[in-house]
Design a protein around this nucleic acid. Sequence first.
DNA 1: ATAATAGTTGACTGATTAGTCAATAAGAGT
DNA 2: ACTCTTATTGACTAATCAGTCAACTATTAT
Lengths: 198, 198
Amino acid sequence: MKERLTDAALDLMWENSYGTTSVDAICERAGAKKGSFYYFFKSKSELTAAALEAEWNKNKANMDALFSPTVPPLERFDHYFDYVHDRLAELQKACGSILGCPLLSIGSEVSTQDQGVRATVERIWDRKIKYFESAIRDAHAQGLIAAPDPEAKARALFACYHGTLAQARIQNDVELIRDFKLVARDVLGVKDAHAVSS
Amino acid sequence: MKERLTDAALDLMWENSYGTTSVDAICERAGAKKGSFYYFFKSKSELTAAALEAEWNKNKANMDALFSPTVPPLERFDHYFDYVHDRLAELQKACGSILGCPLLSIGSEVSTQDQGVRATVERIWDRKIKYFESAIRDAHAQGLIAAPDPEAKARALFACYHGTLAQARIQNDVELIRDFKLVARDVLGVKDAHAVSS
DNA sequence: ATAATAGTTGACTGATTAGTCAATAAGAGT
DNA sequence: ACTCTTATTGACTAATCAGTCAACTATTAT
């Protein structure tokens, strides 16, 4: 039941927003009663943090596979971008909207008001950046890109990607996500003569 | 009074969020009563659209100056990024938080639920991109960058910039915004030997 | 002055909000 | 059978929410 509650919460907040997702609605979707909710979580804020952590745990194995060191570093990004694109396109078929990244949507919404959720978003954000950072370092070592500061480059690319996901959400246009692959090459500084800018 | 209401609404929604900004709170900050609010606006949604348009009108002359064709194209971006950085840093001194861009925050929050506000955000978003597009086209014409599709490049850079602003809001860190200048050079594909990637 | 218009007021509604709580049920270990 | 812990229930606040409305007051044009 705890899992049903976090699943329901993330679904609703991802599709709509943190603010418009009421505890009642979460309970209804999870098939739980209010009392059960507050047996497991002491507040909506705490549930949200738990829901984000649960989503991370569900996706971690997938991320590990996509960013496996056995994959050539620049291909890892392509696989990841493809994966997110496909998943968001599938969700769009179900709910009619490109939903973007819940970390950014929820994080941006509550950052000035809920330090608990804000810190959770930041923590998961940093974990995900580690995948980027490692791939960038490997690409640099192989001479594919010039990235003397892989951590900064990873943060920059991650921010650019999330900006694109947010734009795709606002414009409800999945193509913006597909086009990001080319932008990523620019940000990464890929040394490839026949991959010119858009 | 109409202006006081839109000002109050934008301030509160920018600092907090659309969802947590109540009509009562807007009225209180504007020094108006509920009845006045609904005399000018038929809903909170309509007020929000009006507030965003009003903000655009206040900033337009400024944007025109920053992106004046008399300024070398790539410098326009630097001036703009500096301007936003300075303004957000100043706001941070007043309210304690880096607030990012209200277009993205509000747009991302309401996009799946309020088509009126969503369309307004998209409209203003497109207007702002025009400044980028024109600067990119000029830079391309001067051989400073390679951008065969200025419109796509402008959209990409705009999305990357807003991703950075969102990250700065979530992490409450103004330095991320300062660092964007270098990322922008990569995205733009500036042909400058001594401007290597970060 | 008068009448029409534009703006303002405060009390009101009905719905929804997050969160509480005592009572109940289910399961497991003894 | 008994008990302790874990989980579930539904009715309950007290506050807040967006939005309404008839009455009231400026302002302005004639």
